[in-house]
């Protein structure tokens, strides 16, 4: 049991960047980030006992973390305000977007929860089939949703990106 805990600690340590990034992508408030981090660690620990190593550790981390977040967000009433791109105009902060990380943050905040999970996995380099397995969707569903999100983002961010990319 102790060796299992040690191994688990090492895995969390090696993948904390992923877990914390996901917490930050969905929650703005530090307290909420801490709460969801604890929930994820708990779910990972529960699932670690039955993890047979059939998928890569990073894939397992993404699967458990994103599903924990999506369930939590769905169950929460006081959800972080994330506006759907399709339903409302995206509002930019007064400060000009000055680097890709900030642009990434704005893009993520503008997405619906499931779309956000898909885009994060896409940015991580997962293929549509892998994304569909991680999020328990069909590959067709992933492909359709990704195209829709891409088109919406393109329409919303084209001008800003152009302005931003100029030297």
């Amino acid at each position: 049991m102790e060796s299992q805990k040690r191994k688990f600690l090492q895995i969390i340590e090696a993948n904390q960047g992923v877990i914390k990034s996901l917490c930050r992508a969905y929650y703005m408030n530090a307290e909420d980030q801490q709460d969801v981090f604890q929930d994820i660690v708990l779910q990972l620990w529960k699932s670690f006992k039955t993890f047979r190593g059939e998928s890569k550790i990073s894939t397992w981390i993404y699967r458990v973390s994103l599903n924990t977040i999506l369930v939590k967000v769905r169950n929460e009433k006081r959800k972080i305000a994330t506006e759907s791109i399709s339903s409302s105009a995206l509002t930019f902060p007064n400060a000009k977007v000055d680097d890709d990380t900030e642009l990434l943050s704005i893009v993520l905040q503008s997405l619906k929860d499931l779309d956000k999970a898909m885009i994060i996995l896409y940015l991580e380099g997962y293929k549509n089939k892998e994304i569909s397995e991680i999020l328990s969707l069909t590959p067709t569903n992933v492909s359709t949703r990704l195209s829709r999100v891409r088109a919406a983002l393109k329409a919303k961010f084209q001008n800003q990106c152009y302005e931003f990319k100029q030297p």
């Binding site: 688990f8 960047g17 914390k20 620990w45």
Partner: peptide
């Protein structure tokens, strides 16, 4: 979207820089 891939990697690396509190993890489990 591919232009944002390096930004996601940077974001992840930034979040990996803070050391994990092992006591906290042990407390949770």
């Amino acid at each position: 979207l591919n232009n944002l891939k390096p930004a996601w990697q940077r974001f992840r690396l930034l979040n990996a820089m803070q050391p994990v509190d092992q006591e906290e993890i042990l407390w949770i489990i």
